[in-house]
């Protein structure tokens, strides 16, 4: 085990899978010669060559669709969006082509493709470059949506995503690329999709958190421990497939739950998780499910406003106290 950054863990995952399977190629803006806008693809061009590590023009719809077409005939593309904000231009190909091809062809054409890149809130880049889009993609049957919160999860889940035979949306939190953690060096280290991780065990309340919210939830749990509340932190890691069973087990144990996300609340993933809990574990709840989300406005630029727009540790603490009637 070595301690590396999220960025390095992702780089290892791509490198190992490309060495393992010659049908895997990487395509996107600035992935090759520039080494990646966020340096996730550093060194890959040198090691794997220009046939497999390909710089594209700024043409997201075009290269996303090209990737889907290549996947139709057996290649396994990794399509990098410099940021997921730009994937919005490519949604026709992601949703209408990648997600639906297997179904509308009656099972004949599966699409083994990974669309990956940074998403979620970034630092002071205003409305168009700072947004969480997972609920869009998770909405569509046919897509899988992955959001790692640690370097180890990032590596294990990305390797699995590349080996998966379906289209995977892999969202890396832009603020977390420098986060460090222990990561296995075993080239066969993978983590199955659809398996939540209990990031911290606890007895009194559950916080369901993903991506950027996981480290915040862990900090909140530390604070709450001091106040006498033992928190369990569940990280679903994949939004679709969603490991609702692990969440329900925790809720049945703690009887209180807060669902945290940095995205907008309306039609969001937390809303879906909250409903699932209500439908399947209502009798176990000692308080209504509490949702903590980003605010329902486009992301502002000003630092003070930006900080207000994303949930912080204090809000998570307050939410757990609320469901604990403290």
């Amino acid at each position: 085990m070595a301690v590396i950054t999220m960025r390095e863990a992702l780089n290892q995952a791509i490198r190992e899978e490309m060495l393992r399977d010659p049908d895997v190629f990487l395509m996107g803006e600035e992935v090759a010669e520039y080494q990646g806008a966020y340096k996730v693809t550093k060194g890959l061009l040198e090691q794997l060559g220009p046939k497999r590590v390909i710089d594209t023009p700024i043409t997201e719809l075009g290269f996303a669709g090209l990737g889907v077409g290549a996947a139709m005939v057996g290649l396994r593309p990794i399509i990098e969006f410099m940021t997921f904000n730009f994937s919005i231009l490519a949604t026709d190909q992601i949703i209408n082509s990648a997600a639906k091809m297997l179904y509308m062809s009656g099972g004949q054409f599966n699409i083994p493709i990974v669309f990956r890149g940074p998403g979620g809130s970034a630092f002071q880049v205003s409305s168009q470059h700072s947004q969480a889009l997972e609920s869009w993609f998770a909405y569509f049957p046919g897509l899988k949506v992955v959001m790692p919160s640690t370097p180890a999860d990032a590596k294990g889940l990305l390797k699995t995503s590349i080996r998966d035979d379906d289209p995977v949306i892999f969202i890396e939190q832009e603020r977390m690329y420098g986060n460090k953690g222990e990561v296995s060096e075993d080239p066969e280290f993978t983590i199955p999709l659809g398996l939540a991780d209990i990031k911290r065990e606890g007895a009194d309340a559950t916080i369901v958190a993903r991506s950027l919210m996981v480290p915040l939830a862990l900090k909140a749990a530390e604070e709450l421990e001091k106040q006498g509340v033992s928190c369990e932190v569940i990280d679903p890691r994949t939004i679709r497939p969603l490991d609702i069973d692990t969440i329900l087990e925790s809720v049945k144990k703690t009887n209180r739950v807060v669902v945290a996300e940095e995205s907008h609340p309306f039609c969001g993933v937390a809303a879906e998780i909250s409903l699932e809990i209500m439908e399947r574990a209502f009798d176990y709840l000692d308080a209504p499910v509490k949702r903590v989300s980003g605010v329902d406005v486009p992301m502002p630029y000003a630092k003070n406003l930006e900080e207000l727009a994303i949930p912080g540790v204090d809000q998570l603490v307050a939410a757990v106290r609320e469901v604990s009637y403290m």
Binding site: F25, G65, L66, A70, M72, V73, L75, Q93, S97, M104
Partner: peptide, 30 residues
Amino acid sequence: FDRKANFMGGHAIVGGQIPLATGVAFASKY
């Protein structure tokens, strides 16, 4: 669609098949 015939589909968003076909051709060259 017909995989055996290499008929890669009718696609119903106007122009949507054009990037897909480009990708199929990319794969042949790859």
